[in-house]
Each structure stands twice: as C-alpha cells, then as structure tokens.
Design a protein around this nucleic acid. Sequence first.
DNA 1: CACATAAAAGCAAATAATTTGCTTTAGTGA
DNA 2: TCACTAAAGCAAATTATTTGCTTTTATGTG
Lengths: 189, 189
Amino acid sequence: MTAKTQTRPGGRSARVQASVHAAVEKLQQAMPREALTIPAIAEEAGVTPSTIYRRWGDLRELFADVALQRLRPDSPPKDTGSARTDLEAWSEQYAEEMASEPGRKMIQDVLVSQGERGKASACCSITRAQLDLLAARARDRGEAFPNVDDVLDQVVAPIIYRILYDQPLEESRWRGFVQRLFDDLANKG
Amino acid sequence: MTAKTQTRPGGRSARVQASVHAAVEKLQQAMPREALTIPAIAEEAGVTPSTIYRRWGDLRELFADVALQRLRPDSPPKDTGSARTDLEAWSEQYAEEMASEPGRKMIQDVLVSQGERGKASACCSITRAQLDLLAARARDRGEAFPNVDDVLDQVVAPIIYRILYDQPLEESRWRGFVQRLFDDLANKG
DNA sequence: CACATAAAAGCAAATAATTTGCTTTAGTGA
DNA sequence: TCACTAAAGCAAATTATTTGCTTTTATGTG
C-alpha cells in the first residue's frame, strides 16, 4: 500500500478529475466565469454531467477544488540573503498574486466552499508552510524571525482583508507591518 | 422629493423586498441553508419566483443583501470610560458576533456577492464607521486613539482572517494587538 | 383629483439544469 | 485470471431558470 486516500483514487478517477479541472480552466479563459455551467464543463471534459454532480455537488465546490490546486506554490520562496528581505520579498509576491483578478477569485472560491470544512484551512496551511520555510531558513542562518502566527495575523491577514473588502492596501503599509514585526523582535525579543 | 434612489423605490417594491427578506430569515431557521431554493422562498414570501430572479439574479445576491441588513449595528458601541477599554469592548463583541455561525455565514454571503462590487466594501464601511465613532469619542475626552486604518489592519483583519480560514483566534491574541497599538501610540505618537 | 407614465410584479410557456435509478466500465486485490 | 466494488455513463423524471407578454400600482402632472 503506497500513498492512498481512504476511498479508491484509482486511475480512472484521477483522469476524470484532471480532465474536469482542465475543462474548468480552459472555459474560464474563454468566457466570464458566471457563464460557466456544469453541463458545459462536462461536455468540454468529455464526461457526463452527472459525474460532476455526484463528485463535486455544485459549481462552488468544483471551483474551490480547482482553486486549491492553483494555490500550491510551484517554487519555494526566493532566498534574498536575509530574513527581513526574504519576508519582504515573499509578502510582495503574495500580495500581488492575491490581488490579481484570478487571485481574488481563488480566495473567494476557497472561502465559500462549505463542503468538508477544510478547504479554507488547507489554504491557510499552505501559506503557513511557506512562512515556516522562511523561518527555518532564518534559523539556519542564525537570524531572528518573527513568530509565524504573528506574521499571519499582522501581515497576511491585512493583505487578504483589504483584498476581500475591496479596500486597496498600499505597498508601503504592509511593508511597514513587516518592519514593525522585526522592530519588536529587536526591542524585546 | 424626499430620500430616493435613482430608480423608483416605490411602496410596492419595498413591501416585496421586506417580504422576501423575511422569508429568507424564516426559512433559514427552519432548514439548513443549502436546502433553500428561490421557488421556496418565493412561495413563503407570497411572490412569484420570477420576481426574485429579476430583482436579485440568484441566491447568492439575495443572501448577501439580507446579510448586509443584519450587519447594521442596532446600537452604538458601548462607552466604557476610556479609549482603550472602549476598543477592547468593541473588539470583543465584534469577534464574538463574527465568529458565531450566523456571523460567519453573513461574512461569506457578503464577500462572495459579485454583483455591483460594493457589498463587501459597504460592509467594511460599517465597521469603519463604528471605529470612527470610538475615535471621535476619544478625541472629545482628550485621549489618544490609534489610526483607524491601523485598527482595521491589525485588529479587525486578523479576527476576520482567522474566522474565514477556520483557525480560531484566542481572545488573548487580539487583546494583545489592541494593546500593541496603544503602546505604539505612547512610545512615539 | 383624475389620468398618463413607467417601473416592477404576475403569469405561463419554453428552456435548461439537477437528481436519480439502473447499467456498464475499469481499477484492485485475491 | 477472476470476483469485487467504486466510480462513470445513460436516460427519464423532476426542478429550477429564463423570457415574452399582461397586469398592477406608485408617481407626478395637468
């Protein structure tokens, strides 16, 4: 028994999933997303609609599933030489990616899926893992690094909050938040 | 001409809107929300489904509309005697209200409505207005009060972020965030 | 105070999406 | 290779959604 979930993730299932995901991504580019329908996706993917209904239930769950995939970072955060600049570089890329139109859609898709409360928290875990990586790197270099929860609360949270509530957050602001965390570290860390 | 939007918000429209909102709230208590359908809501409200389709488009928009109403605070924030305790008391109530199951649903409903990008930002404005009120009160008393944007970013944002991503935020943490803002104010304000 | 106006509601027929019972296909482990 | 079973396909039945047209009812003008 190698890597296996509890059900039966056989080869055909995997193919159907890939094909449906691909269909969603392709159709999203060809038309406004609110025009996508399950029957249309099914046709593009070469499966019957009932397959999608049974596996995902509705468009929201399917979109969330697709979004979660895209969310997985394809490369580890860039190493810029110091803990502080690493976190700044990461924040910049994160903020940009999430503020883009596809990024916003991804966030919404994930947040709104209510099936198995876990998509959202998986999404947060991905971010946390990235930050853990930066923290470990800093540790290896003998540098101080802020608590990862604090980074989530004081840097990531405002970035996401502003995007969701449609209140642009200028770069100088989150940059200030990063600085503040490092300052605190120096003052009483 | 009294208070009027640009279209024609006559008396019948208002009645239908009220009746539909009431139907949504009533049915939500009687059954799991994912079981609500537009035809069912229409029947409960005593209108035809096409009225709802034409006015709101789909369930998401309707839910967002209802949520935004509930969001309006019914009473101004409590006056506890000092700026710091005012903000603490407000944060506590806000965090509790938003973390509750209806609160979470409200947030999601509002955030996900894409029609006229404005529901989400209206929601943020309500919060900001509350904070402005606390700030004004502090000013009247001659007390310092943190920048409202900073409160949004460093206190409200983490509360909402944690709720959305299903990562419980302990009271001691946001309490610490409030404290930190007031400390900064004292140190270099 | 009637009356013309137009925005929104009702109605019903047409279309499209969703659900469901049953059959078939294809991975899995013996 | 074979029996087993989870997932996919198919098609009929059900529901939801859209749409053209008619009717109702606030509004404000003469």
